[in-house]
Computed example of a mutant assay.
Amino acid sequence: MDSPEEATIRSEQKFRRFLKSLIRKQPRDLLLVIGTGVSAAVAPGIPALCSWRSCIEAVLGAAEQLEVLHPGDVAEFRKKVIKERDLLVVAHDLIRKMSPRTGDMKPNFFQDCLMEVFDNLEQHIQNPVVLQSILRLMERGTMVLTTNYDNLLEIFGQQQGKPMESLDLKDKDKVLQWARGHVKYGVLHIHGLYTDPCGMVLDPSGYKDVTQDPEVM
């Protein structure tokens, strides 16, 4: 069995080989996965883009401002965000609390909160260099998948005259076209998009649905 030092060295060597293999790849052979780091770097003025925790906190702030939740409930959920390790559970409980009578998991006023949080994204783009680089890769055939709920890349691409498309897993035919390379400027939001709360993956059951769907995974 390797010592911790040997295991570290072996891991670093494997990582270097992986990086070298990427250099030899053509853009059309790549699948680029975008996470919160990209959006947070592009629009640092929107805290909700920085992390899952920050996103929940921002939704709570919007719910308080729009008076969707009682102040006591807001305070209680803020404590949960700090203490609870499983933020998916917090998000699930928060949405249920927003609609206790109808049982609707993603009601209209939840969408109102999301629109408040992600309003006017295009006005908050401060560092577009990363987005420019991604667009250049897409021009050369790189496919882009994101776990982000925002559509900053699509907004920026449209500003540059590109026919950007936001895709999610609800439209399986479109996703399959994208997977075959037929949607050049398509961005697959595997966790959904904030403009359509019903398609967002926000709780454990949603993640289970995504990962166990044989048609798209």
Rank of each mutant, 00 (worst) to 15 (best):
M200N: 08
M138Q: 15
L193A: 08
D168C: 12
R140L: 15
K184N: 09
L145E: 03
L145A: 09
K184C: 08
M138D: 06
F118C: 03
H124C: 02
K170Y: 14
G186W: 01
T142F: 00
D150F: 03
L135V: 10
L193T: 08
L152T: 00
K162F: 15
L193N: 11
I190D: 01
K184P: 02
G181N: 08
V129F: 13
L145Y: 08
G161M: 07
K172H: 11
G186L: 04
T146S: 06
D119F: 12
T195R: 13
L121I: 14
K172E: 15
I155P: 00
G186M: 02
L202I: 12
Q177Y: 11
K170T: 12
L121D: 12
G199R: 05
V129W: 13
S133G: 12
E154P: 01
F118D: 02
K162T: 00
P163D: 13
M138C: 06
D168F: 07
D203T: 01
H124A: 09
T142G: 01
Y149I: 01
G157V: 02
I125F: 09
Q126Y: 11
S166H: 01
K172Q: 15
I134Q: 01
I134C: 06
M164H: 04
P204E: 12
D173W: 06
V201R: 03
L202N: 06
D173G: 13
L188A: 10
E122Q: 14
M138S: 05
V117T: 06
G157Q: 03
C198F: 07
L135D: 01
K184R: 15
N120R: 15
L135P: 00
L153D: 00
N120Q: 14
L167Q: 05
V175W: 05
N151H: 13
S133H: 12
D196W: 13
V201C: 09
F156A: 00
N127Y: 11
I155L: 14
L153A: 00
S166K: 11
R140G: 00
D119L: 10
K184W: 03
I190E: 01
Y149E: 05
V183G: 03
T142R: 02
G157N: 03
V183T: 11
V117W: 02
P204F: 12
V175A: 12
M164C: 08
L193S: 07
L167M: 07
T146Q: 06
Q132K: 14
D196L: 14
E122W: 07
L188W: 00
K174R: 15
W178E: 05
I190M: 13
M200L: 12
H189A: 00
D196T: 14
Q126L: 15
E154R: 05
Q126H: 14
Y149P: 01
R136I: 11
D119V: 09
Q160W: 05
N120L: 08
D173A: 14
G199Y: 01
K174I: 04
A179V: 03
I134F: 03
G186S: 04
